[in-house]
Design a protein around this nucleic acid. Structure first.
Lengths: 124, 124
DNA sequence: CAGCATCCCCGCGGATACTG
DNA sequence: CAGTATCCGCGGGGATGCTG
């Protein structure tokens, strides 16, 4: 990233790549769903729900719809009774995984120091 | 990331690295501030404000305080009149830059496809 | 110049109940 | 099983005004 590109990252239009990715993945659950699907592979709704645990049914539905709309996951309905719906990463979704892992590793590496900083900050 | 590590990424405790990083950087402005400081180098308050443009003064202050508390940026006050305050990335903050750039590049690469997917999705 | 204080709105997301 | 529909509280964040 060069200085000449800064407009791409700080202007408030739809061309700002960072804002776009943040608006899409910065919500409470999107990245987590992508990671779980990436690690576990194809999962059906309730399985996904139990893996994440503390997400509400509503938000899981909303998140999945949004990711599907963006072409990051696929939703496959099997016309059976009881119904079965399977979710899986698309190639585009899978291409995000390395970045998610990198961020997670960064967080794991620096979490301790960040906590220490914050405590010192609070006390001062 | 192995399957054995999934708990790190989907459990709702403070050990979840992904949730931690998202809670800290997933807000509306943190990543943008880090990127601008990374690209432009040390900046004072109003300069930062004008670079980002559409951030409110309040949110810039709040964001800077949070990043400072986490040890991602430094805040240097020069005891002059009128006052001068300079912000710069710490080493820890700078270590985030490559990941931010990677995400931005991912977004730039896939934005067009994502928009196309979403339009098709809306129409169906 | 670099903020802090206050007011206030709106939309994210949880809880609950219902359906094909 | 895999959702929809509805209600509602909370807090993120904008606008405005004031200060050392």
């Amino acid at each position: 990233m060069t200085k000449e590109d800064w407009k791409k990252y700080s202007e408030a239009d739809s061309e700002c790549a960072v804002r776009n990715v943040l608006d899409r993945l910065g919500d409470k659950w999107s990245m987590l769903v992508i990671i779980v699907l990436g690690v576990e592979g194809t999962l059906r709704f309730n399985k996904l729900h139990s893996f994440i645990g503390d997400i509400s049914q509503k938000m899981l539905t909303v998140t999945l719809k949004s990711l599907e709309a963006d072409g990051l996951i696929t939703r496959t309905v099997f016309p059976e009774i009881p119904p079965r719906v399977e979710y899986a990463l698309t190639e585009r979704g899978a291409s995000l995984l390395p970045h998610m892992e990198a961020l997670a590793e960064w967080a794991a590496t620096h979490m301790e120091g960040i906590y220490a900083s914050r405590e010192k900050y609070v006390r001062s």
